[in-house]
Amino acid sequence: MNSQSTKRSILSLSSDKIDIRYVAKLARIALTDDEVQRFGQQLGDLLEHVNVISKLDTDSIPATAQVVESRNVEREDEVRPCLDRKTVLSMAPQAQGSFFRVPRIIAEDG
C-alpha cells in the first residue's frame, strides 16, 4: 500500500476495462449476456466519473476507515442466550433434521 504501487495502479487504470464476468464470478451473481453488456457499459461510465479522484495528491494523506476515531470496543467473555433451533431452521430455504441443507459443494467453491 505504498504510494509507489498506488501510482502505478492509477496509471494503468485508464487502459483497463472492467472484466465484468470475472467480477460477477467473484460476487457470485449470474449475469445474462445482456446484463454483461449493459452493466459493463454503465460501470465503465461510472469508473470514468470516479477516476477524477486519481488527480488528487494523497501520498501523505492517511486513509479514513472510521470517521469517529474509536479503539478497543470489546465485550466481556460472557455467554448470552442463543436463538432456539426451531426459529433458526424455520428460516432455512432447505433444512434436513437439525441441519441446513445445501446442494453439493465443489472444491473450487472455497
Partner: peptide, 10 residues
C-alpha cells in the same frame, strides 16, 4: 466432498 450429492451444515 468428492461425489457427494449435498451437504448438511451445523
Amino acid at each position: 466432498i468428492a461425489g457427494s450429492s449435498h451437504s448438511l451444515i451445523d
